[in-house]
Design a protein around this nucleic acid. Sequence first.
DNA 1: TTAGGGTTAG
Length: 587
Amino acid sequence: MSVSAAARHLESLLPRLASLRQYLQFHARLLTSGHLGAHPGLRARFLDRLALSPHPAALPHALLLLRSLPTPATNDLNAALRGLAASPHPARSLLLLAGRLLPALLPRPDALSLSFALKASARCSDAHTTVQLHALVLRLGVAADVRLLTTLLDSYAKCGDLASARKVFDEMTVRDVATWNSLLAGLAQGTEPNLALALFHRLADSFQELPSREEPNEVTIVAALSACAQIGSLKDGMYVHEFAKRFGLDRNVRVCNSLIDMYSKCGSLSRALDVFHSIKPEDRTLVSYNAAIQAHSMHGHGGDSLRLFDEMPTCIEPDGVTYLAVLCGCNHSGLVDDGLRVFNSMRVAPNMKHYGTIVDLLGRAGRLTEAYDTVISMPFPADIVLWQTLLGAAKMHGVVELAELAANKLAELGSNVDGDYVLLSNVYASKARWMDVGRVRDTMRRNDVRKVPGFSYTEIDGVMHKFINGDKEHPRWQEIYRALDDIVSRISELGYEPETSNVLHDIGEEEKQYALCYHSEKLAIAFGLIATPPGETLRVIKNLRICGDCHVVAKLISKAYGRVIVIRDRARFHRFEDGQCSCRDYW
DNA sequence: TTAGGGTTAG
């Protein structure tokens, strides 16, 4: 066989390599045939495949091979950078580029090298390294490369530096659809969903901004829907849905999965389920089921969550998200035994969130010993949220010892938020232990307690209005406060008395009532009442869990004013109608 | 020969 024929033969074997043994044999033949040095293209292709092979020994072997080369080429380096960036230890990719993994002189990196390194810094959330790589992009003179700059933008966004991501975007002279998608997704996931939506509207208004023959694609839609879901804006969500239809993207299963999530989080369970049923059964993925089960759960339909879970085809294995969604549904519907049954039959290892849901489920049901036993027998130490869950259960059932224990753990873990103190103080107050109530208050004062601000949104005619507890920022605040006075007098006739035990301040009863009266969700509802025609459904989104008093008030308003009120709090939906809530006061 | 963007979670 001539040299080139041998090389062609090896080349043809390359795509068929699978086992580690085959890779090692191939390596041996490269060595013995002399092609390792004589055929750098073949060598780099082999190295690339080896470094990406899923076998755990493959990547170390690729690095060994790289080290054995007297003068590695840029492509050899890139293969290793790529493999390391995709590995469980992406930081090693950065060490390699910095020359700390190879003793020999490094070949000069190119745009591709930087692309892989940026992927690695994104996976490490290493903003500092992303900045350094940005400098390297400029130094190497490869800053006109759309793909590289998109990767750079994405890396900034994934490291949480949205300002720099935006700046890269703004300074790019050519942007393709992936560039837009990258910033869109970065903003949507980086707690700037409103900016994401503004960017989407800019793209939707004139996608002449895109290179010719390029259109928004399913990634654009998924990212935009994720922003709508976070904001809870049904109007924007429906606009994105219509937009997707125009481009024939509404049949795409990933778009459908995002639509299910969006409609559910924007308060429309029926639309979410319509989308789920519109997907052909054989096209439904695990995520489709997870999103639909979660939709039932958020809306308090635990029985339906269980039913859908049982109906999952056997070819789709439930994952941790599926179980969490089902458990959540059981929790919100008070289905204790079903929840425990599902938890005990889990076929994946439960994580902190699964335990959290079970502890909440047991705690609400008054099974505090079991809840506590669950916490201390978990295979990992409980986190802050879990102790807060237990503290909440202790408060609900007036168990002082457990509340104290949980509060001590919270202090140990460095939690210092007002809610913890309020719960502990309320347990003492329920037992008339006023000295202890005072002691908690003193501790609060000493510790400079962090207040988690409560705020609510409501969408009226497509405009979002934001309210913070007791604020007077809204242009119509005087009308809103007058409406609240009217509300209080009308629901008082139905027997309303303020539930002031949720307020812990060193203030008198009347001031406590004041503090409660202007909770953000009440401001949002009052505004909704004066800004919409009679009978229209009011939709409110709250960042925290709804408080007991607001829950009572919302029920009474729904009766006194003949309005359906839908409140999405941090955990679920409450639908108030004719004096009742869909959660049946179990939340 | 090798590069960029995405959904579900207490």
